[in-house]
Design a binder for these strands. Sequence first.
DNA 1: ATCGCGACTGATATCGATTTCCGTGGCTGC
DNA 2: GCAGCCACGGAAATCGATATCAGTCGCGAT
Lengths: 361, 361
Amino acid sequence: MALKKTGKKSVRRKGVAVTIDEVAALAKVSPMTVSRVVNGHSTVRESTRERVMQAVSDLGYIPNQAASSLAAAQDARIALIYTNPSAGYLRELLLGALNGTARTAAQLVIDDWDGLDTNAERKAARALAKGVAGVILPPPLCESKVVIEELVSAGVPAVAIASGRFNHDISSVRVDDFLASKELTEYLIQMGHTRIGCIKGHPNQTASTRRFEGYQAALREAGIPFDPALVQQGYFTYRSALPAVETLLALRKPPSAIFAGNDDMAAAAISVAHRRGLDVPRDLSIVGFDDTSAATTVWPELTTIRQPIATMADSAIDILLRTIRRKENDTRVVVDHVVAHQLIKRDSVAPYTAPAGKSRG
Amino acid sequence: MALKKTGKKSVRRKGVAVTIDEVAALAKVSPMTVSRVVNGHSTVRESTRERVMQAVSDLGYIPNQAASSLAAAQDARIALIYTNPSAGYLRELLLGALNGTARTAAQLVIDDWDGLDTNAERKAARALAKGVAGVILPPPLCESKVVIEELVSAGVPAVAIASGRFNHDISSVRVDDFLASKELTEYLIQMGHTRIGCIKGHPNQTASTRRFEGYQAALREAGIPFDPALVQQGYFTYRSALPAVETLLALRKPPSAIFAGNDDMAAAAISVAHRRGLDVPRDLSIVGFDDTSAATTVWPELTTIRQPIATMADSAIDILLRTIRRKENDTRVVVDHVVAHQLIKRDSVAPYTAPAGKSRG
DNA sequence: ATCGCGACTGATATCGATTTCCGTGGCTGC
DNA sequence: GCAGCCACGGAAATCGATATCAGTCGCGAT
């Protein structure tokens, strides 16, 4: 009756689950062989394999994941580094990453690198490299040369999320910012707008540039002359967009629509418009980008481009894990995963109407 | 120089991460003691604890989840359930919980129960109970009788975060909403305001009631008559506060200050005020509650009560883990942890001035 | 003074699986 | 006929952390 181990003075509680040793005993082989069969490793004679498999199913053996990770040193610890993103953005990122790690039993560690200078970033990256098996880099970190450099040289796989472009050094998961932005602008044009203001995102991020290029491309294709006066610099934050929008609306010939580089800035645009007594969307149409929670928090709700951040973070975990597992072969694989975006039409856009009666005193 | 273990013929590759042994070596204690400190076990001298903690942070030690689960013969999966909180709130919650789980090698699993009816909630709770070792319940779930009932009867420890009051069935980590709210209102009164509007939070949450009571108490103590017309119902969301604020400002004798039940609603108040051409804080002072990211996103930044959600979530993890470990003794321990709040003064409040020159045409 | 007890800590044995390093046998090749 | 290989499968050593149990130290009780 008694399983092996009976003799040992096991003072430790013993789990209720079936272990590899029990399977081995029943199949009359060593636990090592069971492991080989279960993991499909090296060579095991067909007859032996069958005996083991039989024992496995008889006992309903399920390998202990903790033990497996520990022994295989596959304890995939994945880091998610962030630097001051908007609450809505971070929320999506965390939700997606958490989902991915829960699904794969990976361990997620997060860290805030806000305010680090290049030097500190390099040090942080170096330290991080020896503590984790993979890293997820959302903007703007995904464009930091020193960080990528350190990570790559340390051999730690990383994946950039929403980076705006593919950097062949590390994998990336992103949407096509150019196309999305072009579509969004085209929609505005379809609605009759021709004077479309633009609040650019942070200049150190490629995504900003891409989105701006998409905006320009749409204008060009529609034969609408590009007016530099309608473009203002923003930094992706709500606050940064405030003065930018003020400037736009103070123009002698103000725009009838504004394309903000992200939802937070679009929300700021609504706020400024309201402060100036403008009705959105009647007097001014506004669109954002990302479809974070900010888009549906404000009133009216924003027409925007949905970028599935959570799903993207989840995919990033997958890519990382796959790379980590394959690491043994030393085959460095870098993938560029472009996911579909989607134009979400809500209430912040209305067809263009000539500015008739001034609505304020 | 060399850490212990030097003599052994380690044929195995060794992990890159910092291990408990390294921490122990640096702190000059045994790994066991480090384990005790990290997991909040009771019996460790204060001086020792500090030395260990110092070593932990110096090395950036993060326990290996796999090893921990294996040794403890249980994987400490802790669930964080949420139902549609604001982005800022959820962000804090996640950040804090993640921090706690990283520190203690627990695994965080999250789930969205938004829109579940009582029945579905009961089923979800029952299912959850058999999959995790502990649960964190933020509002409004922390007041759901069925959920608590199921969890308690299943013997799964839970802790309520920011619940507004102590329910002796489960542990809780919270601030004193009544006191905090009273302080905040007193501050407004000190600044000379006497007509103070109030946007209440969601009626199904005790915290809302508490905050409202604090508001009333401050008024009473200051001898200011309570005017029901100045009180409006909100639901903690930005959107819900919009009409409430409109109503308040449309009053024949509008308030000179508004106390919103949380930051999101305060942000909404600013937005409405701006839309009506009011200057904040000159024409209208506004205060929020929570100090989530919304407080510093809007302009002007909000004077508010800082409720350390992230820290609270972190503590919740600690409490949970301690309870889980003590489980064998079957001593059910329920604690009520009240943490300090803090009045944060920013730019949304100004001393009261009689409404002199109308500022709009 | 000695015993007992509680507060602290460390030594040691495991947890369950995998990696590394070695034995067997059976076959092939010269 | 024997070295050389290869297919197979086992033994032992870990992986990193925790449960147990055995001290150590200090101090009031006996």
